[in-house]
Simulated scan of single mutants.
Amino acid sequence: MEFKELDDFLGTHFIYTYDNGWEYEWYAKNDHTVDYRIHGGMVAGRWVKDQEANIVKLTDGVFKVTWTEPTGTDVALDFMPNENIMHGTIFFPKWVQDHPSITVCFQNEYIDLMEESREKYETYPKYLVPEFAKITYMGKAGQDNEEVIAEAPYKGMTDDIRAGKYFDADYKRVKK
């Protein structure tokens, strides 16, 4: 698949692994919302639906996505899918670095806890994680597909997705 315009990017489901070994799964749900699951790294097991984000085309085939989570974590991702790479910068508040297990959940059901923790614990200094990543999977899921990120991550999930065992031809989950 060739990416040029924002419409080419929206509705795409990605799996990527940062140079530090952290594996993420991320979905450009529509022009203002993203869903994601974290499979490796400091907050592996965390998953989020309907995160409001700013999604723009920087130039042909290059897209920037930015958001602030209820945890106070700021994220900036630059996708270059035609080259199978992206660059992400995550600005973790000190409390997430000190207490990552609090965030390892389906965040949508624990927004109050995220906001409470953000107020209760130290925010600074931020833990900055700037990393390049190799995109290991891209799928055209279509926009607003609630099946893409619909359950907690499990061991081997990304391998199942890459092997074609997780979604059918219509990008609906096979395993439910």
Score class of each variant (00 low, 15 high):
Val96Lys: 04
Ser101Asn: 13
Lys126Asp: 06
Phe106Gly: 08
Thr123Phe: 15
Val129Thr: 05
Leu77Trp: 08
Val129Ala: 12
Pro93Thr: 14
Pro130Arg: 11
Tyr110Ser: 04
Ser101Tyr: 11
Pro100Trp: 09
Glu119Cys: 10
Val104Arg: 12
Pro81Gly: 04
Ile102Tyr: 12
Cys105Thr: 14
Asn108Phe: 05
Ser117Asn: 14
Leu128Cys: 00
Ile90Trp: 14
Asp112Pro: 03
Ser117Leu: 10
Asp112Gln: 14
His99Pro: 04
Thr73Glu: 02
Pro81Arg: 04
Thr73Trp: 10
Lys120His: 10
Pro81Gln: 01
Phe92Asn: 00
Lys126Gly: 00
Leu128Met: 03
Phe132Met: 06
Ile90Arg: 03
Tyr127Met: 01
Val129Tyr: 08
Glu131Leu: 04
Phe106Glu: 15
Pro125Asn: 13
Ile90Ser: 01
Thr73Lys: 08
Asn84Gly: 02
Asp98Thr: 03
Asp112Phe: 11
Ile111Asn: 02
Gly139Thr: 01
Thr71Ala: 07
Tyr127Pro: 00
Thr136Pro: 08
Asn108Arg: 05
Ala76Cys: 00
Ala76Ser: 10
Cys105Tyr: 12
Phe132Glu: 09
Glu109His: 13
Glu109Pro: 02
Gly88Ala: 02
Lys94Ile: 01
Phe132Val: 12
Met86Cys: 01
Lys94Ser: 08
Pro81Trp: 05
Pro125Ala: 15
Ile135Met: 15
Glu116Asn: 11
Trp95Pro: 00
Ile85Met: 11
Met138Arg: 00
Glu119Met: 12
Thr123Asn: 09
Asn82Gln: 10
Glu119Leu: 13
Gln107Phe: 10
Ser101Phe: 08
Pro70Ala: 15
Tyr127Trp: 14
Pro130Cys: 12
Met86Asn: 01
Ala76Phe: 02
Tyr137Val: 08
Ile135Lys: 06
Tyr127Asn: 13
Glu109Arg: 02
Asn84Arg: 09
Lys140Arg: 13
Glu131Gly: 03
Glu83Asn: 07
Glu131Phe: 06
Ala133Pro: 04
Asp112His: 09
Asp78Thr: 05
Tyr121Ser: 13
Pro130Lys: 07
Met86Lys: 02
Met86Arg: 03
Gln97Ala: 14
Ile102Asp: 06
Glu83His: 07
Gly88Phe: 07
Val104Glu: 00
